[in-house]
């Protein structure tokens, strides 16, 4: 088991390298001279040249890449000019807020999605199945940002149950209850599409498994139907559900960008959008690399979970 984890971690190194190369290459597409962009159009050529030297921009691209990479490995992601603060500090602050939001959503969509899928498969063509199938269709069709806005209208404005937005600091302030009140709407809005996708896949994975011979064996042993479904079938179906959970985590993380804008959530997605609009390239670059690296690590965790579940892939 330990060997498997080590192997997966080692295999992540080229992927992480690839991510940095891709981000670096995209940023190299930026038209014009970054120094001019930073200093503004009134800068003298001497200023520009000096800043270029300071930023190492006068050197060839591969050298610049390795300097950038080396700095990042030491935790130096550069300095955000719009916030006048180290990029890594800002990214860590914002990412923790995103983690609270996306993490909650992910747990919600995984639990609800699998539950709905299993119930739907167990009651195939029954009333529950039809209701779930319809809800799922609606869920995967509604854009999360539109759903979020409609939820604000209904739950915050009409019913006045929950605050519209205004989550400023995750830690501190109103405590857990306040956090939950602010978290409820964005987390649900963010989880709806992924819940639908997971429910759909869980349903078909369950239907596939329920036709297998080992399910007939379980029934021939006299195992009750509830145990057949929740133990025998679900366990086997999880083998195809877990990879989808990994993919959906990426979609939840992506959707968080919209939801953070709609609900004014102080997360990394909103930070990135603001940084793009203010052309704070170092902040975008650092944020993208950091979040992508976290996602790669998360996917390794998914693979490990998969190997814990399925003895056949443990090598």
């Amino acid at each position: 088991m330990g060997g498997y984890i080590a192997k997966r971690l080692l295999s992540a190194i080229p992927v992480l390298m690839g991510i940095t190369v891709i981000v670096f290459s995209i940023m190299a597409l930026i038209p014009g001279d970054p120094a001019t962009a930073i200093l503004g159009s009134y800068a003298t050529p001497e200023n520009v040249a000096e800043l270029n030297r300071d930023l190492g921009l006068d050197r060839p691209a591969p050298v610049r890449y390795f300097i950038w990479l080396g700095n990042m490995l030491q935790g130096d992601f550069g300095r955000s000019f719009s916030l006048n603060r180290p990029v890594i500090d800002e990214v860590l602050d914002r990412f923790s807020a995103t983690l609270v939001l996306a993490g909650t959503s992910f747990v919600l969509c995984a639990l609800l999605g699998i539950l709905a899928g299993v119930v739907s498969a167990a009651r195939q063509y029954g009333l529950a199945d039809k209701a779930i199938t319809f809800a799922v269709l609606l869920g995967i069709s509604i854009p999360s940002f539109f759903l979020g806005m409609m939820m604000i209208l209904f739950f915050a404005v009409r019913l006045q149950w929950l605050p519209v937005s205004g989550m400023y600091a995750i830690y501190g302030g109103g405590g857990l209850v306040d956090l939950l009140r602010h978290l409820a709407m964005p987390a649900i809005a963010l989880s709806v599409v992924a819940t639908g996708v997971i429910a759909r896949l869980s349903r078909s994975a369950m239907l596939e498994v329920l036709r297998q011979d080992f399910i007939r064996t379980a029934r021939a042993k006299g195992v009750g139907e509830r145990r057949v479904i929740w133990r025998h079938a679900l366990r086997a179906a999880m083998v195809s559900i877990i990879p989808v959970l990994g993919i959906q985590a990426g979609f939840v993380l992506s959707g968080a960008v919209y939801i953070e804008i709609v609900f004014q959530w102080p997360g990394v997605g909103r930070m990135l959008v603001d940084a793009i609009l203010t052309r704070d390239i170092l902040l975008v670059q650092g944020g993208v690399v950091f979040v992508a690296a976290c996602y790669v690590m998360f996917n390794i965790a998914v693979d490990v979970a998969q190997s814990l579940l399925d003895p056949r892939i443990r090598t």
């Binding site: 991510i19 981000v23 993380l253 992506s254 997605g269 052309r279 670059q285 993208v288 992508a292 996602y295």
Partner: peptide
């Protein structure tokens, strides 16, 4: 490598550039 990104991060990076 491209698929290792959550899709929006890549899109945001491109738009940023």
């Amino acid at each position: 490598m491209l698929m290792a990104f959550p899709y929006i991060l890549l899109a945001l990076a491109i738009v940023a550039a």
